[in-house]
């Protein structure tokens, strides 16, 4: 069905999307908590900043990543001299670019579930002897689970299709950074690639739709379990 190059693109896309979700999860949980629970002066600014990838052209995100994480960028050069890690034009860079782009999606989903927690449950846990970290792990986190799950699956599905930021920051190297949409783009550029492009588009459609449906299904199940 798929050519070797196409299945390579598919596997790479899945890997990049999965890595981006893992990168996003702790950050998105922390940001949601800050945005919902913490009271500090710069909260509206942080809120706007987190949502920037939704409104900026993805190529801008890729460009900013190049500036910061490129081999001459401040973070990129530091990572390289300290750990020998290079991100620009690698599959790790593709995951980072994807993570930045899908972060607002995940924060939105997690934030909603955090706001939906019945007020006072954490106070109840306090009176039962649970300290701050204990309360977060034993009460807050499990009650956020529907949002975390929905956010992760949505971000994964969206990450499979990330194009602009990835091609700018990680390039379009077959087998290394050429994910599904990039392979699709390359196929369209070649004179005989129409049929390959159609198949890749169909595959993207199936993955995206399947991902969203799965997210909704899982979140529904979890919510029912929690009686919400």
């Amino acid at each position: 069905m798929l050519s070797a190059a196409e299945s390579e693109a598919l596997v790479l896309s899945l890997r990049v999307a999965a890595e981006s979700v893992l990168l996003d999860l702790p950050l998105a949980i922390a940001l949601s908590w800050l945005l919902v629970r913490a009271r500090f002066a710069g909260r509206p600014l942080l809120d706007a900043f987190v949502h920037l990838p939704l409104v900026l052209p993805p190529v801008v995100i890729g460009y900013v990543l190049l500036l910061l994480f490129g081999i001459h960028g401040p973070i990129g050069s530091a990572l390289r001299s300290a750990f020998g890690i290079r991100l620009a034009f690698t599959s790790g860079g593709a995951a980072l670019a994807t993570a930045v782009m899908s972060l607002p999606l995940m924060v939105r989903a997690i934030r909603l579930s955090l706001e939906a927690i019945t007020p006072g449950l954490e106070d109840a846990a306090r009176t039962l002897g649970a300290g701050a970290l204990d309360r977060f792990v034993s009460v807050t986190l499990p009650l956020m689970a529907p949002g975390i799950l929905a956010g992760a699956v949505t971000a994964f599905a969206a990450g499979l299709g990330e194009f602009g930021a990835v091609i700018t920051f990680a390039g379009n190297v077959p087998g290394s950074t050429q994910t599904l949409p990039l392979a699709l783009y390359s196929a369209l550029q070649s004179p005989s690639g129409e049929w390959a492009a159609a198949r890749l588009a169909g595959l993207s459609f199936a993955l995206g739709f399947g991902g969203l449906a799965l997210a909704e299904l899982l979140a529904r199940r979890l919510r029912r379990r929690l009686g919400q």
Binding site: T118, G120, D123, A125, T127, R225, L226
Partner: peptide
Amino acid sequence: PAERRRIGYVFQDARLFPHLSVAGNLDY
């Protein structure tokens, strides 16, 4: 702090943990 006062607080709205069973709530 509240968590070290050893006060059993029964709230008007019970505030049971919805992600735990009755047994899980009792054991909390």
